[in-house]
Design a binder for these strands. Structure first.
Lengths: 235, 235
DNA sequence: GGCTCCACTTGATTATTGTCATGTATCGCC
DNA sequence: GGCGATACATGACAATAATCAAGTGGAGCC
């Protein structure tokens, strides 16, 4: 397993990339890697957190089981993303569970490593906060989407988030199961299917795990339009 | 205006309470207070953040306007709660807007004050992170509720969060407008009304801005039960 | 090829919620 | 007291999403 590659990915993560070289090295030398198979659990909600995680390959989902048994997918992380920053320091309990959704590879930074780094250089704390802010921001966006957008609109936005271009047409590969996408967007798989079907009218075509977008701007328009108008357009 | 009272509230906030006395004093001496009337705006999403806020009286809501015009209430803060920690340090743009929902009084801590404190004592950073974590946690809970619970269940949980006891019966005063409660729970005021009506069957009675709960355990049961079963019970 | 398993789609039905319209109670105000 | 404004409740209807059930269509396997 190319150790160099993992280091590179970790160093380019939002969490670590603004750290000075020597501190990066120190942290990496204190960290460990582990591989997980699809479906394996990284940790469960309620466990005490002692490490920050950075995904270096594959996909990891954070989810929560509500008291009534329903599963809520909080987020899905790709290569290069980190999670657990804010939790680890105080030895708090994880508010979510984590599971590998593909076979994947994860780096574990013990919280003491970061605490030590912060003592050496208070600027580090600001970086950690910046990284935590990114998570906060993503959660706020999700809340907005759930509260203020319809199902198909959320799907449209999900597609837009996963395509690199700003305009024109493109084809994107769905990063994981439709079942999981549905969870991430707060709907049932059936509803996701129907949403995809609806998006055909704005130039989105799904084939297996690929989504072809005819006109990105048109799709963005759709996701940003008032639901009521949208309905009139569909007539 | 009793300056002493405000200081006390600020010092008891999650953000500041674990700071050593001298640092608390330094931060308070660098901060300012401001009063807002109901409906006044503290800041708008997109503005660059330069301060952390602590509510010392009244209620402040954080909300977000989606591109399609829909408003999503992200949170409502009471006396003693702080917000904006993670945003302020890097001079990021606020991801949300803030508005006074009652006439209220807010303390502004310039981010430089906290940065300075963090330089003096790296432990401070951990406190700031802990406070940020609380927000993260609250957002995760909200996501869970939106994705995994029905409307009436969310209302039930909202009531439970606002009552002090653990069991028995109690009467709580609704902290703010039903209009705003509805927004906070991701529903329209009409749906909130209907939810209240439904909760009568589990011993909740609403009168003006008071909610009487006959049996807290019963209500908790309701909020933690599978929606399908719930429906059978209602028959 | 033909088989099954799996992920996904589609259809029919019901439930939940939003929308619009209307009704009602309360409060301040003259 | 009467007036209007505001906040809230309710009813009728449309739309959206969940549920249950059946169908499709590959991928892998014999």
């Amino acid at each position: 397993m190319p150790n160099e590659r993992r280091r590179k990915i970790a160093q380019n993560s939002l969490l670590l990339k603004s750290f000075p070289q020597d501190i990066q090295d120190m942290i990496l030398s204190m960290s460990s890697w582990r591989e997980y198979d699809r479906g394996e659990t990284l940790f469960l909600q309620g466990e005490t957190a002692q490490a920050i995680h950075i995904v270096t390959d594959g996909w990891v989902k954070l989810y929560r089981i509500a008291p009534n048994g329903g599963e809520a997918v909080v987020n899905v992380f790709a290569k290069g993303e980190s999670f657990g920053e804010a939790v680890a320091f105080r030895g708090h309990a994880y508010p979510v569970s984590a599971e590998a959704v593909t076979s994947c590879e994860v780096m574990r930074i013990p919280s003491v490593a970061l605490l030590e780094a912060m003592r050496k250089d208070p600027e580090i704390a600001v970086s950690v906060l910046a990284s935590t802010f990114a998570h906060l921001h993503s959660l706020v966006s999700q809340l907005e989407q759930l509260k203020a957008q319809t199902g198909p609109q959320r799907v449209a936005e999900f597609l837009l988030e996963h395509c690199e271009q700003e305009s024109g047409s493109c084809v994107i590969t769905l990063p994981y199961d439709k079942f999981l996408i549905a969870g991430r967007l707060g709907m049932k798989p059936e509803s996701l299917s129907r949403s995809f079907a609806r998006l055909k009218t704005v130039g989105v075509h799904i084939n297996r795990n690929h989504a072809a977008i005819d006109d990105i701007e048109l799709l963005r328009d759709y996701s940003e339009t008032d639901p009521v108008e949208t309905w009139h357009k569909a007539q």
